[in-house]
Write a protein that binds this DNA or RNA. Structure first.
Lengths: 208, 208
DNA sequence: TTCATTTCTTAACTTTAGTGAACGAGTTTT
DNA sequence: AAAACTCGTTCACTAAAGTTAAGAAATGAA
């Protein structure tokens, strides 16, 4: 389905599996049996920078989990790209369209060459019935994510664009380096011009 | 723990249980046994308008689910109240502090007289081991909530205060009636004065 | 009821964001 | 190599939000 731009991993595959298992082990402990079950799902993919994983209008049943790299979620309205989220190492997305089986309202593409897991939503169902442990992990994970997301949302609501940018500087320094300014701008809810100005303003202040 | 302002229900209790069971039945089907298990948890509470369910700094292990009424989440920074969320009928909150057992960063209080369930986070653990069904429901529920929340966040980021207010008018008409303006304002990420002005502006436009 | 407090609105002024346009630097295409 | 794009920045201008203050309306308590 992903033609040329999405490939199976080869040498790095073992390393990637271990990264995933390390992550999972924070939530549940895995038997060899369970590890094999995961490996046999064949979900590891290497995706080239620029690849579009999900397009607006598409009905896609896949969910993603980033092991290394960065993917980006964006809308296109009136021909304008509006970036609303980035997902980097150890972050996952389950697109709305995958849950509700409706056409997607947004795009997901790769900001950099990215290693991720691509899971069909049905895989979960299978896995859950065989290994109820995973059900627990997924519940805990989404509750955590939900709480985290709510705090981010709160912070966004209660701060000005400038504060939001300063926040980003403190908490997500990585993003500022690896992501183009105009994408960061809409992520902060402002135009690229405003972000430029705001950065200049901050520079002025810190000089004085 | 809730002294005078939180009471057990009496006559209305059965009705409330049914509302909860109806809600649950959208996700899983319940046996009589399971219904009894829920009832025996004794989680239904009637809470008076103005009651504070959770205070900043408090370590509270409780999560809430609104059956009737409205509760509100807000921060106090520099003496200013910042409302970031409302929860009404069939909406639930699991405060961040309940998950991580850390002091709460925000308050939760009742906007109106409210009927809700108050569950200790440990109750879940018990219930899940006895009835794995609930684990499934909770996973599905939080995944749904997460997706919903992400869309709301996206919408917030990509629209102006005026658009956000117009959105609210369309999708959450109820809130506009039952919630004070200044609380709505910070919910929209603006000051009460801006909301007033913005409303006047919209009125002008629709007249012309 | 009366008094005090809170809530909402309006106004004047300041600050910041949106908009349209232009420019140079760096890419990519041809 | 030249042309066409993209990206970040700057500028001038417009529009909207923040701030401070004041007053009217609604609410709650004595």
């Amino acid at each position: 389905m992903y033609s040329t731009s999405v490939n199976l991993l080869s040498k790095t595959e073992n390393t990637m599996q271990d990264i995933l298992f390390d992550f999972i082990s924070k939530y549940i402990s895995l038997t060899e049996d369970e590890k094999h079950a995961i490996v046999s799902l064949d979900i590891f993919r290497l995706v080239k920078k620029g690849t579009i994983l999900l397009k607006e209008g598409q009905k896609s049943p896949y969910e993603y989990f980033v092991l290394k790299g960065c993917i980006r979620k964006y809308y296109i309205t009136d021909g304008e790209e509006k970036t609303t989220a980035f997902f980097t190492e150890m972050e996952g997305v389950t697109p709305h369209c995958a849950i509700h089986n409706t056409p997607s309202e947004y795009f997901i593409s790769c900001v950099e060459d990215t290693i991720l897991t691509v899971a069909h939503t049905d895989m979960g169902v299978e896995l859950f019935s065989k290994f109820p442990k995973f059900e627990i992990m997924c519940r805990v994970l989404s509750e955590e994510l939900l709480a985290r997301q709510q705090i981010d949302f709160d912070e966004f609501k209660t701060s000005s664009p400038e504060q939001r940018y300063l926040n980003l500087l403190q908490n997500r320094t990585d993003l500022i380096g690896r992501v183009p300014q105009h994408q960061l701008a809409s992520y902060l809810g402002i135009t690229p011009q405003s972000l430029s100005r705001l950065r200049a303003r901050i520079m002025e202040k810190s000089k004085a």
